[in-house]
Write a protein that binds this DNA or RNA. Structure first.
Lengths: 341, 341
DNA sequence: CTGAAAGCGCTAACAT
DNA sequence: ATGTTAGCGCTTTCAG
């Protein structure tokens, strides 16, 4: 390269000097650095990766730019950078073909590991792709738990939704609540509603398991998690007060906050008139007028575990004989929105 | 490579065959493809890029996973893929140092172009970094308009916020409105509120320019664009009706939808009791009970123009002597939320 | 139609 | 303490 000529040293000396190798005399290094800076030299990562070590890139395959994924992504990015890795996010927009192509790109461009939040952890395509990644010996961590955990070829970090929901029910029962309503955006269109419909279904199972009854009118459903809270608040206000549930368990952070604000605006006070239990709300989020009590999923821990599991596999260089199946903890963070009866 | 040995041909023949070069006999190619498939061969992009053509990667530098950016990103990804490019998004999380490091990574890894939505298009750091990119001859398009357009070293595609806001005012004036209130989330914490504060400021200028008066009580401010609409609705309902504005111009899509829903819930009907004009609302979004009339920014066009400008510069191979400064069009999309007085 | 050989820009083992 | 040399896995002339 020209820097070598200009500084009147060998090429390899430049390479070593610029990476701070102690073999190079300090004065030489200083000279080289000066020349490099003057010439605006920038090492070519492609060549670097092709030759010596790896790429130090982690591919991140996500479905979309949902809020829920932002926190873990930022956390993973921080952790990755700390370890000298660059994160390469890629969005499938819920399309499994795009997902496959993107993952293949990761392989072709020699990503050293992959964190994958699949569009659909149940599909044939998913299983096939996971096998492919495994076949290429590329360490992978799947975010969100796969159905068939026995036959997984990679670590998994995720939330057991039923367990998480159960935590909320247990809390409510302990507080003396029996007339429990649930609020979901299960009518939300497209893939975005899938999760909500799943939560609704699991909640219904839990009602049965706890021997609670769930009257249809206490399934407060809406089409929109962003502003659906108001709709729900409105429909509630129009019901005779004596039929009200004692608490609404809202399965979405936006929904629970909107609901709280909406009820408040309609002169329904929380927790005096009715209690609200949220789900999924990051504890440091602004909570509106009333600090919400919520079942909090620790998404930063999710990110940490995912990255840890990935790095440990990357370091080992050989595929582990057993894969981890990590469940992110969730706990009730108490605000002031659930009354003790 | 092993595929060559296995298929009993030369290495370079494999390379040509796999890329469908017509020089290779069909039968030979078929054999090579079969072997490659059997062995699960995958070409190494690093080597490929280092040797032959470029990387065919476009670096995308974004601030965060805001909704507003999702649409253009998906659009750019589609367009990029169509042209055989892979998009590499990277998030700065509003941190200019991270932004710089990420952009440098793009250079080092030989991205062929960059689309950059800067955390702060006014800062010293921004200007320095833009010069750096220019110095390395890496085609760049900045999303969002830079203050000093004369000294820009790259194409710019963005929204002239004042013009966009003006479109709304003109529409309202034409509809006979004079008592106009504005709703913003200017009190939103951190960088997220910056845009809203800017909009508020520009709106105040426009009020003066149109010779309209804006009483302080008609600046409906909130801390939260997600659910602030309810707060605003609530505060409005508690004002004597005769002091009401005839219309609320809400400078955020979430805010305007929340406001509409909130007012509706409180038995204030739109546009009978009050009109609402939105801003920034994608026309195909669900609008709640009332289809909102909004000033719509065409973010897909933004994406298209950005990618077009970038590709044209990439193709030319030499820095253009003048840079484009493109303003994305905006127009009023009529719903039913603004009454004619 | 296919093989041989040079080289992309760098790293790392070996030689001086 | 620095220079030499052989690759990394591929593309691309240029010969055969």
């Amino acid at each position: 390269m020209d820097v070598a000529r200009e500084a009147d040293v060998d090429y390899s000396t430049v390479s070593l000097a610029l990476r701070g190798n102690p073999r190079i005399r300090v004065s030489t290094r200083a000279k080289i650095e000066a020349v490099a800076k003057k010439m605006g030299y920038m090492p070519n990562q492609l060549a670097r990766s092709l030759s010596g070590g790896g790429t130090r890139v982690i591919g991140i395959m996500l479905t979309d730019m949902q809020r829920f994924l932002a926190d873990p992504l930022e956390e993973m990015q921080s952790l990755g950078e700390k370890a000298g890795y660059t994160l390469a996010p890629h969005f499938s927009w819920w399309n499994e073909d795009r997902e496959r192509n993107g993952l293949r790109k990761f392989c072709e461009s020699c990503a050293e590991g992959i964190v994958w939040a699949p569009a659909n952890g149940q599909s044939e395509k998913f299983v096939a792709m996971m096998k492919e990644l495994h076949h290429f010996h590329i360490p992978t961590v799947v975010l969100g738990l796969v159905t068939d955990r026995k036959n997984a070829f990679c670590h998994q970090v995720g939330v057991d939704m039923k367990k998480a929901l159960r935590v909320g029910f247990e809390y409510l029962l302990e507080k003396g609540h029996r007339r429990i309503a649930i609020a979901t955006a299960a009518e939300m269109a497209g893939m975005r509603g899938v999760l909500h419909r799943k939560r609704l279904e699991l909640a219904q199972e839990l009602f049965r398991e706890f021997g609670l009854s769930l009257s249809p009118e206490n399934i407060l459903n809406t089409t929109d998690n962003e502003h659906g809270g108001i709709d729900i608040a409105f429909s509630l206000v129009n019901r005779p007060r004596k039929n009200w549930p004692t608490v609404i368990y809202a399965f979405d952070d936006l929904l629970s906050r909107g609901l709280a604000k909406g009820l408040n605006a309609m002169q329904v006070f929380i927790p005096k008139d009715i209690s609200i239990l949220g789900y999924d709300v990051a504890p440091d989020e602004p909570m509106g007028p009333i600090p919400l009590t919520t079942v909090c999923i620790e998404t930063r821990i999710l990110a940490q575990w995912a990255i840890e599991a990935l790095f440990s596999e990357i370091k080992q260089k050989i595929a582990p004989d057993s894969y981890q199946y990590l469940e992110v903890p969730c706990r009730v963070v108490e605000g002031k929105s659930v009354a003790k009866l």
